[in-house]
Structures are given as C-alpha cells and as structure tokens.
Amino acid sequence: MDNSTLVLRTKLIDRMFHWSMVSCFTLVALSGLSWFFPSLNWLGYVLGPPQLARVLHPFLGIAVFALLMCMFVRFVHHNLFVRTDLTWFKHIVDVLLNKHGQKLQIGKYNAGQKILFWGIMSLISLLFVSGLMIWRAYFAALFPIPVLRLALLAHSVAGLALILLVIGHIYMGIWVRGSIGGMISGYVTRAWARQHHDRWYEEEVAPTKPLPSKRHG
C-alpha cells in the first residue's frame, strides 16, 4: 500500500493528546475501580500501595481533564451535530449489523462518535468538579458533609458511566478494523475513509487528495 491509498485522518499532536490521555485515564480508572469495587482492590496497585494510589489518583485525574480540554479545542468543530446525523441514526441497525452499502452522509465523525465525544466531555467535567470537592488533602473541608456525600455519589456514577462508555469506545475500535492503527499512525486507507465516513471523504479527502490517475512507482 503506498501513499496514494492512505489519507491522514488524525494529526500527530492530536494522537499525542489522545494516547497520553489514555495512559493517565487507565491508571485513574483502575485505581478508582479498586475503591468502588473493593473486591477488585488489587486493581489499585497499578499506582503502588493504596495510600500512594490515593495520593496520585487526583493528580492524574487533573492531567486527564487538562488533556481533555486540549482535545475539546481540537475536536469540537468535527463533533457538532448536523442534520445528516439523522441518516445515521435511522440506519443504526444496519450499521451495527455490518450492512454497508447505503450512503449515510457521515462526516469526519459519525453520530455515535459525537455522542461519545459529548458524553466523555460532560462526564470528565463532572468527575473533575466532584473530584476536587471530595479531595481530602485540599478542598473537602470546605464543603458540608451532605454536599460531600452527593459529590461522592456523583463521582461514582460519572466514573462508572465513563468507564462503560470507554469500554464501548475500545470495542468499536476493535470491531471497526483499521481504527486503532489509524489512531496510532494517523493514516487510514482511502477505502476505509469512503466506507466509514463517506461525507468526510467526499468533502475533504477527495478534493484535496485526488486519486492518482497514473500508476507511479
């Protein structure tokens, strides 16, 4: 496969944001799960002894939030909902059943990915705010106990929802072949772009990077 069949989908800077967020998130999520499901206590040892995990978890959480904000700035304009997203929703069953064929007018990200985008943004923001509130070392003493209880509950609900959403995200990456490689190298094949993001392909890829008319060596 040479360059003429590959198109750049995700720039290096965005890939770096994504994967550094993944690294921090993995550690934060595993330590968080170790406290939510004490029978999975061993998960917390990814951050060392439990006391150290308790120290590191909020700092890593802040790193996740900061990286998320960078990604928000970089990605938000691709993730605003548009009229054609309705087409995707109407064909959600075909999409899930792997039935390709119809043109679904999918832009750079499909409607499901946009839901994921906004879901992650809002859940991590909620985790950030509630996490600061329950941060014993610095802020928890500023809040009355009934408020702390609500913040703890909100933090747990949001954390669970986020982890489930991310599991879905990871599964989609595994299911749709070429996605994970694309997020690492940045490149996807022309056919991949056409099949999964037809409108993006037609509007942004094809005009700027026309198919070569002659074989080149």
Binding site: A137, A140, I145, R149
Partner: peptide
Amino acid sequence: CIGCGYCIA
C-alpha cells in the same frame, strides 16, 4: 487507612 475521607461522609 488510605486517607480518602469516605468515613467522614
């Protein structure tokens, strides 16, 4: 004890 403060809540 890890110092999380959940007991306080």
